[in-house]
Structures are given as C-alpha cells and as structure tokens.
Computed example of a mutant assay.
Amino acid sequence: MRYDQFENYLDTDLAWRKKEISELLLLAKTSNKEVLLKSLILLLYAHWEGYIKKSSKLYIKYVSEEKIKINDLSSNFTAIVLKSQISRCIEESDSLTLANELSFINGYLKKINKRFKIKIDPDKDLDKDIIDTQSNLKPKVFKSIVDIVGLDYKTSIETREHYINSNLLANRNCIGHGSPFDHTNQLDFSLTLKDIEKLKDIIFSIIDNYREELLDYVNNEFYLSVNEVKRKSYTLKKDKELEKLFSQIESV
C-alpha cells in the first residue's frame, strides 16, 4: 500500500461519515424533534467507533505490507505478533512449571528477526482479533487501541474522559437500549442542538487528530523504534494542538 492510497482510504472513510452527521444535523435544525436529536447521538457514536476501528486496522495493514523486521519496529508490533502466546501464558499462569514462560521466550527469540506480517481485513467489522472496540468505545477502550497501534494517549483527551463517558457513551447506551432520554441525570448536557453540536465537535476533533497522526506516523516512519525520540516530541506538539482546539470549542 502506498502512502497516497493509505491517505485516500482514511479520507474516503471519514468523508461519508461526516456527510451523514451533517445531513442529520441539518434535519434536526429544521425540525428540532427529540427523535432526531437522539438519532444524532446514536449516529455520532456509530461513526466514532467505526472510524477508529477501521483506520486502526488500515494502519496495521500498512505497516504489515512494509515488510519490516519486528525487531526494528516499536514494541507494540511485537506484542501484536506474540498476542496468542501472551494469552496462553496468562491463561495458564497457575502452572507450577516454567514451561509456558520458556515457550514464550523461545517464540519471541524466533520471531524478532522475522518480518512483521499480520493478516488483517479493515473491512471485516466482526474481526476483533487485534482491534476490539468491545462494542462500547469508551475512552478506556480507546486508550487500549491507541496503545496497540503504537500512538500515545493524550492528556488533553484524558482530562475529558468524564465528559465523553457521560455525554456520548452513557446517553448512547440509554437510547440504544430503548430507554427514554434521562433529562434529570445529566451534567452540563441537555438534548439541545447546541450541546449535541459541541459533543460532535469534541468527538470529531479526536477523530481528525487520530487521522492526522496515523498519516504522520506513516510519513515520518514513527513506527520504527529508531524514531522513538522524534515520536515523543511530535506527540507533545499534537497534544498541545488538541488541547487548544478543545478549549476553543468549550469556550463557545
């Protein structure tokens, strides 16, 4: 996969998602019916989970097709390759022998000089082997995916975990399970266009940032262990940018 192909995949997948949200938002503005406002929350969550899942798989697929030695990649790719062996060690952790641990070490030593090659299909939504949103992409799960992909979870997002959990996840779960919207159990959020637009802007700021980082990681080869220092410096810069953007959204 070439860089321009990777970029096109990310942009095409994001464009139709934004288009759907914009179209539904326009309908909600013209009628302001509660059912449309509730639908906006459901659709916003669906595209939040859908884009993070697909873009993460695309990135892993890109790195896999580069055919780089595992030992030359950042440690998250080693973890991906050894996932099944790690799971086996955890499952059999009560064993009184070192057989599992020795098997794990031998497996590791055999694989680190091989090229990173993973079979992953970005279009297969039911494939949860590597990227698993648990059908409930709360910040804690998002952080796990960020770790698996090899990016850094940002302080600017961490400080807004409660906002995302309360206003996107809790309301999506409530609406999705057929319960009425609980107006009495909301913190700084109501079922209004203004609050939903703010929520939309926060979520898509994270999505846009994620897209930008995946492209920059490919362009700057931040997936290589030799670029670790540059990657850390880059992350600090992006975290400041995202914090500034969040502050602008919240000040309106």
Rank of each mutant, 00 (worst) to 15 (best):
E20I: 01
K111R: 14
N171G: 04
T97A: 11
I120W: 04
G107N: 13
R211K: 14
E91G: 05
V141Y: 08
N171I: 14
Y3V: 14
I90Y: 11
Y223D: 05
L109E: 06
Y234M: 03
C89P: 01
N113A: 06
H177N: 04
I80C: 07
E243I: 08
S135W: 08
A46L: 07
K138L: 07
E161I: 13
V81H: 04
I175D: 06
D216C: 05
S205R: 03
D121K: 02
T12G: 00
L151Q: 12
S251Y: 07
D195C: 14
E212S: 12
N113L: 00
E23F: 06
Y51T: 08
I90M: 12
N106F: 01
D152E: 14
A28T: 15
G107R: 01
Y51C: 01
L42D: 08
L37H: 06
S251H: 08
V63K: 00
L102F: 13
I112F: 06
V149P: 08
K194T: 11
V218W: 00
S247R: 11
S251E: 09
S74A: 09
Y153M: 04
Y59R: 00
L214D: 06
R115T: 15
E23Q: 13
G150S: 10
S56G: 10
R160N: 15
K114Y: 00
K119P: 03
E20F: 04
K67T: 11
E23L: 12
I157Y: 05
F116P: 02
I196F: 08
V226S: 14
L137M: 11
A79S: 15
E250P: 03
K143C: 10
T78I: 12
F246S: 06
E91N: 13
L187G: 13
N227M: 03
Y153Q: 05
L58V: 03
N71A: 13
D125K: 14
D132L: 10
D152G: 01
L44M: 08
I196L: 05
I70Y: 03
N227E: 11
I207Q: 01
R231V: 00
S156R: 02
S55Y: 08
T30P: 00
E34H: 03
P122K: 02
F189D: 04
T155S: 14
K33S: 11
L191R: 01
F204Q: 09
K19R: 15
M1N: 09
I80E: 06
N171E: 04
T235D: 13
E34F: 10
